[in-house]
Every structure is written in C-alpha cells, then in structure tokens.
Design a protein around this nucleic acid. Sequence first.
DNA 1: CTCGGTGCAAAGAGTTTGCAATCCG
DNA 2: CGGATTGCAAACTCTTTGCACCGAG
Lengths: 152, 152
Amino acid sequence: MQDKNCQGRGQWHGKFHGCGCRMTAGRETVIRVLQETSKHLSADEIFIRARKINPDIGLTTVYRTLEKLSTMGEVHRLDSGDKRGRFELADSEKGHHHHLVCTMCNSIIDYDDFIDEEIKLLKETEKKLSQKYNFNINSHLIQFYGICEKCK
Amino acid sequence: MQDKNCQGRGQWHGKFHGCGCRMTAGRETVIRVLQETSKHLSADEIFIRARKINPDIGLTTVYRTLEKLSTMGEVHRLDSGDKRGRFELADSEKGHHHHLVCTMCNSIIDYDDFIDEEIKLLKETEKKLSQKYNFNINSHLIQFYGICEKCK
DNA sequence: CTCGGTGCAAAGAGTTTGCAATCCG
DNA sequence: CGGATTGCAAACTCTTTGCACCGAG
C-alpha cells in the first residue's frame, strides 16, 4: 500500500508468500520498526514502538513475527548478555556492519569500516563452506569481544 | 590439586584472583565440564554433567559461574534459537572454530578449516578496531547463517 | 469462503535473588 | 577471621500456547 512506510513492501509480500505465509498489518509494522532503527531492540521494545504505529498490535504477534523472520533468515537474534533476545534485520537498510561487544557492560558497537578485502574474503569463505557442508548460506554475524573504553 | 582434571587449574586460579575472586570447587567443576565437551551446552546440561563430578553443586552456582566467566571474557554465551543460552569456552582446548547455524532447525556445525588468509585478516581487523574504538579485544565469534543439508 | 494470523489471558521455562550457612585464603 | 561463595526455594521475566475471532487472498 504505502511503500514509503515499509520499504520494499512488495518484496516482503513475496518473501512471505514464498513460504506459504501472508503479509499482514502486524508483520508490516514489525518490519517497519526494524527498518527505522539502528539499535538492537528487544521484543518488548519493538512492541512499544510498533504500538505507536499500530495501536492494535499485540506482543504475541511481535514474537511470532520475529520467530518467523528469524527462521526465514531475514532477522538475526542477538545475544545481549542479559536474558532477553535482541533483534536486527539481517540485511539492514542501515547498511551492513559487524559488532564489537563489551563483556563487562554488554554494550554493542556497530562498525562498518572494514576493508573491501574483508568482504571479499567472507564471500570466498561462504562459497567454500556452502560446498563443503552442503549448506545454503544467507548471511553472517561477526562479533569481536572485549572491554570497551568506558569499562577499562 | 589435580591439574589433570581441570587443565590449567593454576592459570584459572590466577584469572579469578586477578579480579578479586576465588577459585572454588564449584567453579573448577564448571570449567572442567566445559573443557571436556565439544558441544554447546545449556546451563542445565552443564549442571547435570557437573553433578556427576561433584554431586553437591547447585544450578545457581552454574549460572553464577557462567555469568562471571562470561564477564571475564572466558566464555561465550551463544544464542541457539530456542530460549535458553548455550555456552562454550572462548579459548577452547578443543581448538578455535567458527559456526554454521541453520535457521530452520537451529543446529550448529563447528568448522575449523579456515583459510590462512582468514586468520591473518582477522588479526589485522582486530588490531585496527582496537585502536579506532579504544577497545581491548579478547576474542571473536563468527557465524554463517543458512539452511542445512537436512532442512533443504 | 478458507485457512493462516491475531489478541488475550494463562501457562511454561529459564534465570535471578534473598538469606543463612560454609569455605577460601 | 572476614568477605566471597554456595544451595535452596521463592520470585521474576521473558516467551510460548490455547482458543475463539478476524481477515488476506
């Protein structure tokens, strides 16, 4: 309907359709929230933001949507150290990035200033692993762990 | 006491001491369980195995030890898709490896047949990031997501 | 019209916390 | 000895499920 609110709505419609699912208002809302943030939100935080767009949405729908998107490989569930899951689009509009995770305070820094060489190597590795393990690779997650500036 | 049961006991003793903590039977047991497995165990599974070595240990101690080791950067908490956390030594005796995660069935394949280039690039990236973000990097986690052989 | 999706309330599970007893150094 | 650590049970929170109703295609 309004492509400006949920980028690539048609594309998502197709992705859902491809696995026997439907595009609904609830799902659109969750996707939009994920697209509009640059943070790693918990289900709960996504729910609060989603409510502002669509007051009728329930927390259950948020969970079910995230579960489905995760299975589809479109969303990554991150481990934030505390017990709740945090989520981000696998292929974010905000651009591809990797993580620097502080093991003291659990904060996460996104960085995207890595060399072209790194991307090239990843592609190569992906290809090699795909063949060797007969695995269809869709995306990846790279995290470095350590102590951040503040915690030192 | 018996270095053969918990490799590098003295080393661990030192690590704990270094952050104002003590080496105890419970902690030793948890570390030993982690060293002796090649799987990604949940707190619960670690507890069950720990009990076989040391019947007096409590689940609470397992959680508290994992929490501490995680903060120390010695253990990684992995996200397995189901809601419980899974853990592995950051610097396993079993050797360093990366993960291939199936987004359908949540199974994890460890692989360690890296390209030499991959290791070199990682070291380089670590160094660059350390400087740029004033971050002490201790370890990393690399995961590729996709669909496994069985789930295709 | 059909079957997948949704909200609500309740159930389920994993994890954390309070506290008195215990152990390390 | 003194403070860190532990086990137990209770408390908490996040997440999932059952069910009747709704809505996309």
